[in-house]
Design a protein around this nucleic acid. Structure first.
Lengths: 226, 226
DNA sequence: AATCATTGTTACAAAATTGTTACAAAATTG
DNA sequence: CAATTTTGTAACAATTTTGTAACAATGATT
């Protein structure tokens, strides 16, 4: 399993450690640096996401970000900025979004994780099928091995369940009609609508918390949402 | 065609930097100012869009907006307000002045980009959907997700409500007869006229302020207006 | 064959939605 | 302004849609 690699650049050492600890626990591969300059010594192209402090030594987070953007091999790497609290910046906290994002200190671990997930989702990196792996947070579907894991723990899904989940995850954010789901997971074979419902129910149970991510839009169908 | 020029006026320096960084990356030409007074020193007519903070020093964003509206050469420049206050009163004042959009802090970069795109679309008189998303100010209908949001906040619409609203928004500015609405949202199925009225009522309630945009033309039908 | 996991179907309960009606309010018309 | 038409909307009823347990059918495995 290829983990997502995150680079954290912040001059506050303790903050780096906290982020590293928590992000690693969430299944990410984390590298920390305490200055923009030392970060530049790394092969930046290998990171999937960067979390940069805005206020840092000579070269600020923005400065580093500009360099990252200019390099062809890192031009599209998502960046999350964070900056120290100064009262006014307090206003900018909260919200979960995508693309490049902004977090102001102090922030909660949950907040950072939410941002990271969100950015990952937006950038489509979670969908890269390099190795046929689809992930959402700690939920992982390996389409080659036909295996599903949550935080490394294997969840035994049956074939139909796996196919449906794979489709829902790949189409994350869109509501799929039962027709569409049937077309994909049953390859055109015709079964009753209710069969899909039943399979959804069975899957939700197995997925625990993640089961709640499978949403129902009455009258339309099902979808997978954050 | 030259780049789209955006003026950002906000006393929060870090926020300006973030907006500038991201908007520039999105291909816009961005100028930032930290007070309404310093913004007035610029040739305002050269901007295609302004993003103004409401709360700022002596001359507020509203004050600046009024001046912009009064000047003949900037009277039609689109304005997006942002503010930490999200009271209804603020919102109304802003929209009365002729703001094209309103974002309340905290907001995400993605949100701002979405609004900017939306304003550009409208000013370019190309109303319509990109990627199945229909917007009007902060009201957004995502036809893939079958989701309706107002300033990012989800509004739960039922299927019929969603279909009707989608039709009204797509046909913004035209009055649609109940026949037409029925044809679209009920796919030809026949129900009483009054059923549409009831669905309109239900929707208006859910949409809060935007409910007022759904207008009644006695004897004709309904429409969505600015 | 016996056992087991998977899958589809069915039936019923629960939830959500939609439609209808009745009366009040508003708009229009004579 | 009174009469009439049209619309707003609360309340209720009907219908549709979904959740899910239970069971049956299928096919794989021992």
């Amino acid at each position: 399993m290829s983990k997502f690699r995150i680079l954290v650049v912040d001059d506050e050492e303790s903050l780096c450690e906290i982020l590293k600890f928590n992000l690693e626990r969430a299944g990410y591969d984390v590298t920390t640096k305490h200055s923009a300059e030392s970060a530049l010594a790394l092969n930046l192209a290998e990171f999937d996401l960067m979390i940069l402090d805005v206020m840092m030594g000579e070269l600020s987070g923005f400065g580093l970000a500009k360099i990252v953007r200019e390099r062809e091999d890192t031009a599209t790497t998502p960046i999350i900025f964070c900056s120290a609290l100064d009262g006014e910046n307090d206003k900018i906290t909260g919200l979960d979004i995508g693309a490049d994002d902004y977090i102001s200190k102090p922030f909660s671990v949950a907040e950072v994780l939410a941002r990271v997930r969100s950015v990952m989702r937006r950038s489509g990196r979670t969908q890269q099928t390099d190795e046929g792996i689809i992930t959402y947070n700690t939920l992982e579907l390996n389409t080659m091995r036909k295996r599903c894991t949550i935080a490394g723990e294997e969840i035994l899904l049956t074939r139909k369940e796996f196919e449906i989940l794979a489709l829902l995850l790949k189409s994350r954010g869109t509501i799929l009609s039962r027709e569409q789901i049937m077309q994909y997971a049953w390859s055109g074979e015709v079964v009753l609508d209710r069969t899909i419902d039943v399979n959804i129910t069975r899957m939700r149970k197995k997925l625990g918390e993640y089961g709640n991510n499978i949403i129902t839009r009455t009258g339309y169908g099902y979808g997978f949402e954050a």
